[in-house]
Amino acid sequence: MRRFILSRILQAILVMLAVSVIVFFLGRLSGDPTDILLPHDASEESHERLRDHLGLDEPLHVQYWIFLTDTLQGDFGESVKSQRPVMELVKEKWPATLELTGAAIFISLLIALPVGVYSAVRRGGFFDFLARLLAVFGQSIPSFWLGIMLIYIFAVPQFGWAIFPTHGRGEDGLWDHIHHLILPAFTMGWYLSAGIMRLTRSSMLEVLDSDYVKLARIKGVPEYKVIWKHGFKNAALPVLTYSVMIFALVLGGTVITEMVFAWPGMGRMVVDAVYARDFPVVQTTVLLLSAVFVFANLLVDILYSYLNPKIRIAR
């Protein structure tokens, strides 16, 4: 078990190294940042001086080495454009994106797991029927419409109750954060929960049909334990993978959406930085995003080996 986890961590480190190489050299391919930073008619001499100042005059492999060692020491450099430390920029945008995505996944699991499990347990019954109907709604209602409806019902006093704020992120304290999160996270989570619920249901159906669930009942195991101990632990594997993948996808999707709508989050920042050839910002944000993916994968692997002991031995 310990060896398995160690080898997985080693793999994760190697992946991150590869990512750092790729992001570094691809960035350099986009051209010379001094072309953008300096006025059109700047002299070759001032280009030279700025390159020297930014450390771009060193050979590439030396630059990479500096970048790598600095990054490992937690020094992510300064934005070429705004002169501010990259970490400061990231710290401004990152939490908003992560918070919303995380809360959305959490809410979708909160809805989807119990509903999926009991929908499978009561296969063909009224609850199952209702749950599947809701799943169809979940996926066919456009998120923006659901969001607007929720705002009408829960945030506008003329139409419903003004229980939640209509927009923006919480600022003071945990409760304020949660208060602001609930509507947007529910809007996003509702949509995601349909898929997770379906997968949970089908995975549970298969497991509930298995001999070991039958044997658990033969042993006289109480029904809730049959379902959660013997059933769900085996059914959770595909659900878990799917949820983590969704998390990564949504995170990526959020970045794209922010980009399209000029939302002042991470995504927007990355794109701006790419255009400005702001290498430190690009490198750090891409590295961070990949770190999330890699870490998510690592987490799945470790959870997997806990859920399914066969994996520990086989690899």
């Binding site: 070991y212 859920l307 399914n308 002991p309």
Partner: peptide
Amino acid sequence: QDSMTSLNPA
């Protein structure tokens, strides 16, 4: 009949 499937793998 089949202990391969009747014991819980987890």
